[in-house]
Design a protein around this nucleic acid. Sequence first.
DNA 1: ATCGTCCGTGTAATCGATTCCACGAGGAGG
DNA 2: CCTCCTCGTGGAATCGATTACACGGACGAT
Lengths: 345, 345
Amino acid sequence: MAGIKDVAAEAGLSVATVSRVLNGHPSVSEDARRRVTAAVERLGYRPNAVARSLRTDQTRTLGLVISDVMNPYFTELARSVEEEARALGYSVIIGNADERPDLQDHHVTTLLDRRIDGLLVSPTDGGSPGMLGAARAGTPMVFVDRWIPGVDVPVVRSDGRAAVRDLVAHLHTLGRRRLAIIAGPAATTTGRERVDAFREALAAHGLELPDAYIGQGDFQAGSGRRVTEGFLDLPEPPEVVFAADNLMALGALDAIRARGLRVPDDIGLAAFDDIPWFVHTDPPVTAVAQPVRDLGRAAVRALVDRIEGRPGESVTLPARLVVRRSCGEDDAGIESPSPVRRSTP
Amino acid sequence: MAGIKDVAAEAGLSVATVSRVLNGHPSVSEDARRRVTAAVERLGYRPNAVARSLRTDQTRTLGLVISDVMNPYFTELARSVEEEARALGYSVIIGNADERPDLQDHHVTTLLDRRIDGLLVSPTDGGSPGMLGAARAGTPMVFVDRWIPGVDVPVVRSDGRAAVRDLVAHLHTLGRRRLAIIAGPAATTTGRERVDAFREALAAHGLELPDAYIGQGDFQAGSGRRVTEGFLDLPEPPEVVFAADNLMALGALDAIRARGLRVPDDIGLAAFDDIPWFVHTDPPVTAVAQPVRDLGRAAVRALVDRIEGRPGESVTLPARLVVRRSCGEDDAGIESPSPVRRSTP
DNA sequence: ATCGTCCGTGTAATCGATTCCACGAGGAGG
DNA sequence: CCTCCTCGTGGAATCGATTACACGGACGAT
């Protein structure tokens, strides 16, 4: 493969001049510029990013470590992150932690070894040692969605409080009183926050959140199923189950259907994180939607700010409630097209 | 950040020896090895992958360019690719082409600039110039899922012929005769092949595939909706719509529902590419399932074979039919020709 | 005419690793 | 005792770029 020396030879100039042309340095004659461009064209030369990175100590690459690629929420996040990064002239390397701290560490280490310019993390857990080390070592870093308290890193996330309040209000008008939640891992901020927001919203309506109505999940479909089964076995099962993420909602749907129960008639279902598929489930699922695209964009901008020496500030964007049919028909204007509802699994 | 020189100084040895220890070179004394390890530990030293890559001319990185990250099929593929690559000591950089040849080229170019060791591609289109150039230039490369005829690159894919035959047989026993297909872009191999397989299977039952029953889609949900609307507007609409990918099936479901029609009573629906969500739609969707994990694994192995100088052969794995309820209920007890039957897990 | 600037260019150092080659010590064989 | 190997080690070249510094020529000011 042709190197800069070949280009220099072909153009009859020194490598320095070639490099200057390549980088748009001002003091190059028009003639030299033309000759270099021609030579580059002729040789099909492409600068070696590895060599360039070694010299300049910057890779123009961002690392993104997420907890679960198969979760549509994170997929969309990854997509918007890549888009914004590309617009800013950066590439993105994605690491999938699969909710495993050791894998998260593996990716952080690998990314750091490659000398990425900055790191975007949605921490799996309380945070893995390698990740915390990186934060302390001063690697430009930004947390997205989830974060770790006490670590001095900007956080870009969405605040679901208002939306959860709206959700509970919605459920209340529908006459639902016994509301349960499938929580995420207590080690994650999102795991705790969503429960808190839910409990608060309940309190505003004079409702309680008994321990029996708090199920411990792990953001995976399987746990949603198990927890929901537990709920259904209760002497007084809840009237609505609120899943703290979309995968667990799916599991809940499974469990409910396996019992031969109908949503929303026998039991209601709501979820945190809206995804395209919720429109197509049976029934469509009411969900709290985060502004994922904006989150991705904001996160990249904050990180690039940090990288380029600017402050890089935390951002919190509001989530909103998307009402569908899984908690019961809304009263007024909405006429239910009410197609035949099949209940047998 | 500490470099190899610092380690050498700390250990009281030369950089050469440190490097040898780091790379497990045999001729190093036990004493030196210990001192280096200790120094590395003390300094928290991590080798600079950029420098190493420059010198050794290998990055131990694979590029994966897929057509659409938001498509669960590709997400799962990406995941299994990364897993296998990691097991073999490689990292993966994913590029999302979003079904756009220009973006595909952008990613191929970027990846090549970074001197990745090999490229895994699921070509968006007839192939972009940059990608074809890379193939001709001898970059180790393997096509996954889709490929480009006439280009000398191993192909790892799944053969849906048998499964499509099973599908048509299944529909036939259900009494469905007027079968339509939403095709993918003609420029993609998968776009064409699936139509061919469908037509062939139909022929085996003495059925025809009239032009009016072939809709042109682009593997996105929107096109599935449009095409399906067209089908429904026909004087004699099809009894079953077969979508050539999962996203278009979703669009079809939308269109059908918007008309107030019921699946499968009024019209049946089947899809190519099975995804977890198909279990939860209303009704669960019958689909042709590819062995995605195995495809990812095989693709990585073929690519690494090429990289390390071994042949690297093409692989074709069979897909299988997964019968659910979207084409009509099977009468209980009656054996259906379908090899696999799956209900809610 | 002389001097100082500015401009375009080239030479060479540098980034952080790997690796070829040379060298000295120590052991085996004659 | 001398020679020849082997082994462990270090010096220095190298990968492909960027960039500080030096240099020569043109040109404007005095």
